[in-house]
Design a protein around this nucleic acid. Structure first.
Lengths: 166, 166
DNA sequence: CTTGGAATGTCAACAAGGCTGACGTAAATT
DNA sequence: AATTTACGTCAGCCTTGTTGACATTCCAAG
């Protein structure tokens, strides 16, 4: 695909220079992307790892620990440290699986949902403002490129969530 | 805001659902974005922090330590630890400023340039494949949205680099 | 010339959040 | 009954970020 004859400059967007700009844009944008939740979380005993856990538990209530491990791509020891503090503080609760009682299904409590809301409100506000400034066509392109940047396994998780439950 | 009259769907891309998808796309894509260099670096004594330092020294040869501090947004103690190991291993060299001799101007050695090349080759390969799959219009949108997501100070640094020296 | 402040380097201590390895328990599966 | 799976936990390590304190060097202003 995209086998462009010479004389055609439609592949100029693939120059190393343009790729470098994209790389640096990712770097700086990701900083902005995480900065608002980070600001909210600092001072609490929580960090970015808690944010991620809370986000995906909110997103897929009743998800199992193992499932969350796959999505977050960390070790169970690492996730467990985070989950334990969320349990202890009453933000997340685990219910034993009904079908398979080895599984723990995770849910946000009211308190947890409140934190999730405050974090995602902040992050969405930045996203919304960026989307609005860029317009719908740019946003579609944004999502297309991001999706193409993922590993296969990540893309599967993303799309599984994308059109997910609720 | 976003007071969309019914019948007009031009602002439908600003729904919370779409914003959430963008947020998750950023999360998963960033993992892909960093995974190739991370894989190369693991096993060496280096990590992502070294990659960033090497990248921006390559990008703006002769940059000062203070300048790099601004770009990377870390403390000098943190950066110094990274730079010291790069000095020790002969990947980066610091030349005392000619005009202001307090400043250290940073340059990659041949060895440092080789590492930079291997890291950025890997990262560019992923980027190129994503760009190619998405096409030029999507790429333009991608960059537009990312730029809109940055903080002002980040955007200034980004654009300063974007059309920068060489 | 002296001094204030800027740029840099360094030491010590600490925290978050990754990691591995090992081990234990309960429950499902074979 | 034996094995595998899902989960939890203990112990220890690494990277990379943080703060605070302090020394050095040197430009620039008084």
């Amino acid at each position: 695909m995209a086998d462009v004859k010479s004389g055609d400059d439609s592949l100029l967007f693939l120059t190393d220079e343009n790729l470098r700009k994209g790389i640096e844009a990712m770097f700086f944008a990701y900083r902005g992307f995480t900065s608002d939740p980070d600001r909210i979380l600092q001072g609490m005993d929580y960090g970015r790892a808690h944010h991620r856990a809370v986000h995906f538990i909110h997103r897929a209530p009743g998800t199992t620990v193992g499932n969350l491990l796959d999505i977050l791509g960390v070790t169970k020891q690492s996730l467990n440290r985070v989950l334990r503090s969320l349990f202890d503080d009453g933000l997340v609760e685990a219910r034993v699986g009904r079908k398979d009682r080895r599984e723990r299904h995770l849910y946000l409590t009211e308190k947890g949902a409140a934190l999730e809301r405050s974090l995602s409100d902040a992050q969405r506000a930045r996203m919304r403002s960026a989307y609005r400034a860029a317009g719908p066509v740019a946003v579609a392109g944004f999502r297309t490129v991001l999706e193409a940047m993922m590993d296969d396994s990540q893309r599967r998780q993303y799309t599984a969530l994308k059109d997910g439950s609720t």
